[in-house]
Design a protein around this nucleic acid. Sequence first.
DNA 1: TATTTGACCAAGA
DNA 2: ATCTTGGCCAAAT
Length: 104
Amino acid sequence: MTGKFFAKRCYKALLEVPAGKVTTYREIAHFLGTRAYRAVGNAMNKNPCAPVVPCHRVVKSDGLVGGYAGGVAQKIKLLKDEGIQVRNGRVVDFQEKLYTFKRK
DNA sequence: TATTTGACCAAGA
DNA sequence: ATCTTGGCCAAAT
């Protein structure tokens, strides 16, 4: 119970990502002011957010889709539904689809 | 409390 | 370009 504030911040940031765009674990961590890229993915894996937060819009910094608790195929399918193509486990036009956070 | 794990990243060979 | 190595942080065991 204690803790998890970190994960909560992740979800909050994730909600800022518009549909049709993707972000990276690294961007989220950087936005939070930390380097816990792994902890971010770890929190998602436990998946306390399920369909509440669009976890499927998070990919690796290299544009690789990465993983997904519900199965990578599912993740790709959701992305495709938002207009994002994935080829061989990699996001097409990754740099263009990438969304970077900015502080308000 | 200590150790291991992981939906990661960057640099080196 | 690929493969290996080390580091990084929070959560789980």
